[in-house]
């Protein structure tokens, strides 16, 4: 049967592509260091998508490459084969069913992680992060101190309360994943739980004018004692 060998060839091509993707994705990790609890949720959603989409990509590309190779005309006069209507109808319905199922399961996976990210508004430490063209200011209302960096304590839940004095800015630390705009006239909370001690960079991620490119600050995640010492030392 000709169809059988076609299916085998497509499967082989797809497997080859999938193996290539796997090789690249393991050699070059697709996400940077994960340094917050929230990052784990984002990465789990991401990895789910990566697997499903990698498979879809491999199958479709395998099929396309096979078709272009196997069905090219040797002479211009050759004509393709018309399809059988009832079989065509079956393929259409099957395709729709599979794509509806896939889409809904991806949406379910996404909703699940989204819920994990936004369902719990409680926090141990509040930090007011005030953005303005083109700098960041950090205020700790519980201890009434300002920070020259964004100090955070490892393992504690921080409520970052974002405000802006002029235009829209955005708070983004790639290692923490979550991103949130700072909007004039609003105070927007963002919960982050750093899990790894170290220094990171806070980047403004919303075009805010001339020096937007340089609107950064240092984020310093400390152990409990260090953090406490720092809070006292500020004033």
């Amino acid at each position: 049967m000709k169809n059988k060998s076609a299916v085998a060839a497509i499967a082989a091509l797809s497997a080859l592509i999938a193996w290539g993707l796997h090789f690249v994705f393991t050699r070059f990790p697709t996400m940077p260091l994960a340094a917050s609890e929230q990052a784990a949720h984002v990465d789990s959603a991401w990895n789910g998508l990566l697997i499903v989409e990698g498979a879809i990509y491999a199958l479709v590309m395998g099929y396309l490459i096979y078709c272009v190779y196997a069905f090219r005309a040797k002479k211009r006069e050759e004509q393709g084969q018309k399809f059988d209507r009832s079989r065509g109808r079956f393929v259409e319905v099957a395709w729709l069913a599979v794509s509806v199922a896939l889409t809904l399961s991806l949406a379910a996976l996404g909703s699940h992680e989204l819920r994990a990210l936004i369902s719990d508004p409680t926090a141990d430490i509040d930090i007011e992060v005030r953005a303005s063209q083109f700098s960041w200011e950090f205020y700790y209302p519980q201890t009434k101190t300002f920070g020259d960096k964004l100090y955070m304590e490892k393992g504690k839940r921080h409520r970052i309360i974002l405000t802006s004095k002029d235009v829209i800015h955005a708070f983004w630390v790639p290692e923490f994943r979550l991103k949130q705009d700072a909007v004039p006239g609003k105070a927007i909370p963002l919960i982050l739980t750093p899990t790894k001690v170290g220094e990171y960079t806070l980047l403004c991620n919303q075009l805010c004018g001339r020096d937007h490119y340089d609107m950064r600050a240092i984020v310093s995640v400390l152990e409990h004692e260090e953090f406490e010492k720092n809070m006292k030392a500020e004033f």
Binding site: M31, H41, V42, A45, W46, L49, L106, L109, G110, E113, L114, L117, A170, W172, P174, R177, L178, K179, Q180, N205, Q206
Partner: peptide, 12 residues
């Protein structure tokens, strides 16, 4: 489109 991952990818 997936909100959790977009929170990281948005505007990059």
């Amino acid at each position: 489109a997936d909100a959790p991952t977009d929170l990281h990818l948005h505007d990059t």
